[in-house]
């Protein structure tokens, strides 16, 4: 983090002087300031969220994301909800740029409000929200002005079937029984597939929570941009519930014995 006031509000550049160790005049600068061109479209994410994971289970769909919004490698905001309920049967989880996600939340809320005012009994389900988001994301990437996010849409359709889909900043879409974005694609996706794909019958709610907890713990251990404080969203035919922040029990005792950690330096 660059603590010098002249650099407040400017995106850091990890590659040069990450700890602000040089005097101002001698400070190495990126070849070009990211704000140099005046108003710029998002060409890199600034305040970011990490992985979102999701899976289908017998009662519906479960999503999880931690509560951290990072500013580069700085753990900047530690109480950010990255799971957003839309209507009564959908949840959208987001990684990537948090300001772009807030913009999306507002768009979705407006959409739901507009639909409500029509008062015609029509409700937006997860498929409609997914389609809308994929059009918005693809439209923005086609304008070369992307919304820098990876989104997971989970929900229950009016016919009772559960839905789980992915959309990202390129407009790439897919649906799958398990989804993990970002670093989670490497750490959590194998665990999720092990739990879901290898079984003939769907997981129970208890089993699903267990797998999610296992994934979030693994992510906290291995993802340097993660936080051991996360929320689980459940969507069933009863509606949407988002848990209070949870914590995974972790063990760090082994670190004491490893050379290079803690008090032991040699």
């Amino acid at each position: 983090m660059d603590h010098h006031p002249t650099n407040w509000g400017r995106p850091r550049d990890d590659r040069v002087d990450p700890y602000g160790t040089f005097p101002i005049h001698a400070r190495p600068r990126p070849a070009k300031d990211v704000f140099a061109d005046g108003v710029q479209r998002t060409q890199q994410p600034i305040v970011t969220g990490t992985s979102v994971i999701g899976l289908k289970y017998s009662g519906g769909v479960m999503l999880a994301a931690d509560n951290l919004a990072s500013y580069g490698s700085l753990a900047r905001y530690k109480d950010v909800q990255r799971l957003h309920p839309v209507g009564t049967s959908t949840v959208v989880g987001a990684g990537g740029d948090m300001s772009d996600f807030q913009h999306l939340q507002h768009m979705l809320d407006s959409l739901v409000t507009e639909e409500f005012t029509y008062d015609d009994g029509n409700k937006l389900g997860p498929t409609e929200i997914y389609e809308y988001l994929s059009r918005v994301m693809y439209g923005r990437r086609s304008k070369m002005d992307p919304l820098w996010n990876a989104l997971v849409v989970g929900g229950v359709k009016p016919n009772g079937e559960s839905f789980l889909g992915y959309v990202d900043l390129l407009g790439t879409t897919y649906q799958s029984p398990t989804i993990a974005t970002g670093f989670g694609a490497y750490i959590a996706q194998p665990l999720l597939r092990n739990a879901v794909d290898e079984r003939p019958d769907p997981l129970s709610e208890e089993e699903a929570v267990k797998v999610i907890q296992q994934c979030m713990k693994a992510l906290f251990y291995r993802d340097a941009r993660s936080l051991n404080k996360y929320q689980i969203a459940k969507v069933t035919s009863e509606g949407v519930t988002i848990s209070d922040p949870l914590e995974a029990p972790t063990v760090w005792g082994f670190a004491e014995g490893i050379r290079g950690y803690g008090a032991q330096t040699q």
Binding site: Y138, R141, Y166, L170, G171, T172, T173, Y174, Q175, S176, A185, Y186, Q189
Partner: peptide, 30 residues
């Protein structure tokens, strides 16, 4: 990364035409 094991790339257009698309999936679907 395998994103999904089932994303169709072949689509019925008419009763006598079928289109297969391959490359960038978002462009393909659109």
């Amino acid at each position: 990364n395998i994103q999904t094991r089932y994303a169709p790339k072949v689509f019925r257009l008419t009763d006598k035409a079928v289109l297969a698309v391959n490359g960038f999936a978002a462009d393909g679907n659109m």
